[in-house]
Design a binder for these strands. Structure first.
Lengths: 263, 263
DNA sequence: TGTCAAGAAACTTTATAGAATTTTTTCACT
DNA sequence: AGTGAAAAAATTCTATAAAGTTTCTTGACA
């Protein structure tokens, strides 16, 4: 998935995949912002491909829940409220706990100890270590969650968790400015402690405790993000009341006013 | 979404939606069977539309998990193993329990009592009442689960549950002959008892008990379906080892042998 | 004359169709 | 089995039709 001058360089039959990845990255990195209207033609020109694979990629993204598809009216990057994030996190909590309980006793002790050591090394933050600190903290976070999902013995569950992680990350990055998020290392240090509690329970082979530690961890995260979240977000997206459309939930949404999409 | 002779009758901009619905119905009803290869051109001709909306509909179905998308090699109706069904049910269990706990205390008592009465009327089956019995049992089942999901206060969770229900239903109907499934009224009577336990806990306002009753209900269902399930299902789908593809989990699957898709 | 609303026209964007291209599969032949 | 052409199917592109949006015009009314 490398873009080369005008055309997206990829094998025949992988173009849609490459476009999905490219758009996801742009959403994650904030180049595409919440409420933004995505015009197929523009994207096609920008990526040096025709509209067909762009449209198909957008359908996929709508399926994931990254964008809203408004029939006959195009696609907008989803705008989310604090409630949306909480709702997603609640689902994530239920599934992460389930996965944690399942994974208990199925992970190599050596690997758990390794992660525990890495976590302990994150307890102290110095200003000098900050740049690498953030990177390291995120890496360990990913490693632990992925390990648990992969070790749950349930590939379907692992995939659902992966999807939720992606959604959560997208919305988090859409909603907050990156700098603000990245610099909050206090939360990262807290997370290290929460993670360690999970790992220790896993090492002890106590599935119940591990599940509870995971629940605590996610609840703490929700609390943090909710606090940081702006109270309300006005709708740049105002669907026509007559048009059928799909929100993040796939359910129909009735618009309040007849207003056009922001271009 | 009415098909009229050759062309799918629907408004401009809703064609993909109509095709998705149509294909879902065919999968549910068993006209499209597990492992079957779906050729865009054939579907296009059959529905009297061009390949474009067909392809788009198939992308959507792949997102839902009803079909597998094999890049450059087409689309096949997913074939599932007993393990797949168990995996899905495990996720469903976690989420249904969460929803049940949340919904506790948020549902009108009158409605719960109404459902309880309907359930109690399902305890006794006579041969004469069998035809309507099955219909009634399914209706109450849907009503209760939908009510709980809708009352959870979490639209995202409700939507996830809906997706899982659809998946489960699709795979169940794909895998078993319909007659066999429909005629097992003993299981339906058992379900009525399990459902009643949930409703009674909800009436009592005991979220914990309601969650546990729901867990029991789903576990019982899994046990039943697993018993009825054929032990293994060989793969009619055999991907080439070099080709990237998405299984139900979106994860890459490596094929064992270099073999072509069954046509 | 100025303002506002309704409607027409121009323009933009989306949705679908059909053709061109690339890849995969089939099948005859060695 | 291995090879290579032919056929089939998937992917992508281009073009056109349909819908949505904006701008402009017209005319009623203060």
């Amino acid at each position: 998935m490398v873009r080369n001058g005008r055309t997206l360089k990829c094998h025949h039959g992988q173009r849609r995949y490459a476009i999905v990845q490219s758009l996801l990255t742009e959403v994650f990195q904030g180049q595409l912002r919440a409420g933004q209207h995505l015009v197929a033609q523009d994207l096609a020109k920008r990526m040096g491909v025709s509209q067909t694979p762009i449209r198909e990629a957008l359908i996929e993204l709508a399926g994931i829940g990254i964008v809203d598809w408004l029939p006959n009216r195009g696609v907008v990057v989803r705008r989310v409220t604090a409630k949306d994030v909480r709702d997603i996190c609640q689902v994530r909590k239920a599934l992460e706990c389930e996965a944690t309980r399942c994974a208990c006793g199925r992970i190599e002790l050596a690997e758990l100890h390794e992660i525990a050591d890495e976590l302990r090394s994150l307890f102290k933050v110095t200003l000098r270590s900050l740049p690498t600190y953030i990177q390291k903290a995120r890496a360990v976070d990913s490693r632990l969650h992925d390990l648990i999902a992969a070790s749950s013995g349930n590939p379907f569950l692992a995939n659902e968790l992966n999807r939720l992680k992606m959604l959560f990350r997208a919305f988090r990055d859409i909603t907050y400015s990156r700098r603000e998020v990245m610099s909050d290392y206090r939360r990262l240090a807290d997370e290290a402690h929460e993670h360690l509690a999970i790992v220790e329970a896993l090492i002890a082979g106590d599935a119940r405790a591990a599940g509870k530690a995971m629940a605590r961890h996610i609840r703490a995260g929700v609390k943090y993000w909710t606090r940081a979240m702006p109270l309300t977000l006005d709708g740049a997206i105002r669907p026509r009341s007559t048009t059928r459309e799909q929100g993040i939930n796939g359910t129909s949404v009735n618009g309040v006013a007849k207003r056009s999409i922001r271009r």
